[in-house]
Design a binder for these strands. Structure first.
Lengths: 227, 227
DNA sequence: GATTGTAAATGTGCATACAAGATGAGTTGT
DNA sequence: ACAACTCATCTTGTATGCACATTTACAATC
């Protein structure tokens, strides 16, 4: 199963932005570098394409995905829906060991807070994946993992430089709500938390994407027709 | 892209139960029958494995997935979470054309009601996929499609013969709630609807799966030790 | 000078070939 | 008769090769 290794290598490279969005991914170049044949590279690329991390155009090869803002919003919406379910499922069912593990993780996040921005983002992402795993629902965990990956890619493109720090306090509140067993409150907290991540990190929600609207002010400024 | 064709062929065959759960899927045999090489069959099988329709064990080949009851429950839970989001997203945003299309579909369901059980199940599934498509959220639509497929497979294994009829009236109520723009009510309706499908169609929740418990009565019956 | 036609180069789509691991039948030893 | 071993066979894992599609560069024409 060396195909899996290739998959993981590419995936990691993309998420760490060693391969930046839009970059071409020729099968034989990758195969050369990784010491495997095109067959395995192809398999890995196909898999990454299904997860939305690479785009795969017929006869034109693969490239690192470059999601549009609309796709970005869609991914975050789905993520909110899924993690809401995580919160509901977990509410009141957290073992002590699990709660401790989460608390320990949050302490790590706090330690990395001002220190290392990159590390901070990684840890914040891991927190959500830990939660999903704790549900014991493998399908749910896989989906959360998948949308989380896509979110990382999206933040790499559209995220503001330093504002994508998943507020540590919000994680703490969430754990508390889960322990108290208040499913509704936990789900709402999760929802608002993720919504906050979007609004903190993502470019402001421009719903109009019509070029004419964008060019309007410039037309007026140059004394051209504004109608 | 003949690999896609192979994928669709296999997928359809599985969902129609031409290939029943647990059946082995040798690459060679499939390739022969479909007139393609193992390469393409392999690609298709890999993709189906990611979607949970086939199981893929290293060096031991592929077989049609045979989900456990736990997996079944997990899938239905995720489905409920996703379709809740569909309902929330769609509430108050249904165009007249969309509402008409849904109404027309429900009429089809009603026509097939007593007639053709197989057709009835297919139509019910399509209704949910139509809804997901209407959100305009491609990722959400893909996930819904995926869990729906898995649900079909699950019902094929664990479903009671004739009780998996997705009540037509529940679909009607849902459309109504969506048109009225009551997101909370629509989401709750969807939730209960899917819960109802599970309880109507799925075998009752046996939480104990220990062989010893199952064999207990037989041991007693044969005069063997029941301790 | 711009546009279209054409040919070389690049890279994908798919098939085939070979290597390695799993399966099962036949065989041998106890 | 049963267990363990061996070899033949089947199937998967991976590499390589060929054909075709796309792109690019260059030349010819208007």
């Amino acid at each position: 199963m060396r195909a899996l290794a290739v998959y993981r290598a590419l995936r990691k490279a993309i998420l760490e932005q060693a391969l930046s969005p839009g970059m071409k991914l020729p099968e034989d170049a990758i195969g050369d570098r990784l010491g495997v044949s095109r067959t395995l590279v192809r398999e890995a690329l196909g898999r990454l394409a299904l997860e939305g991390l690479v785009e795969l155009k017929p006869n034109r090869g693969a490239s690192v995905a470059y999601p549009t803002l609309e796709e970005a919003r869609d991914v975050f919406d789905v993520r909110r829906g899924l993690e809401r379910l995580v919160a509901e499922t977990l509410a009141g069912r957290l073992t002590n060991a699990q709660a401790d593990a989460l608390a320990a993780h949050v302490r790590q996040e706090e330690a990395a807070h001002g220190r290392d921005g990159h590390e901070s983002i990684r840890l914040a992402g891991e927190f959500h994946i830990m939660l999903a795993d704790m549900t014991g629902n493998a399908i749910l965990a896989r989906y959360v993992q998948e949308v989380s990956s896509r979110c990382s890619l999206i933040l790499a493109i559209y995220g503001r430089p330093h504002s994508s720090e998943c507020a540590v306090s919000e994680h703490r509140q969430l754990i508390e709500a889960l322990q108290q067993g208040d499913g509704r409150r936990a789900a709402d907290l999760m929802d608002h938390h993720l919504q906050a991540v979007v609004s903190r990190a993502l470019i402001s929600p421009r719903t109009d994407k019509d070029i004419r609207d964008l060019l309007g002010p410039y037309a007026i400024g140059e004394g051209l027709t504004s109608a």
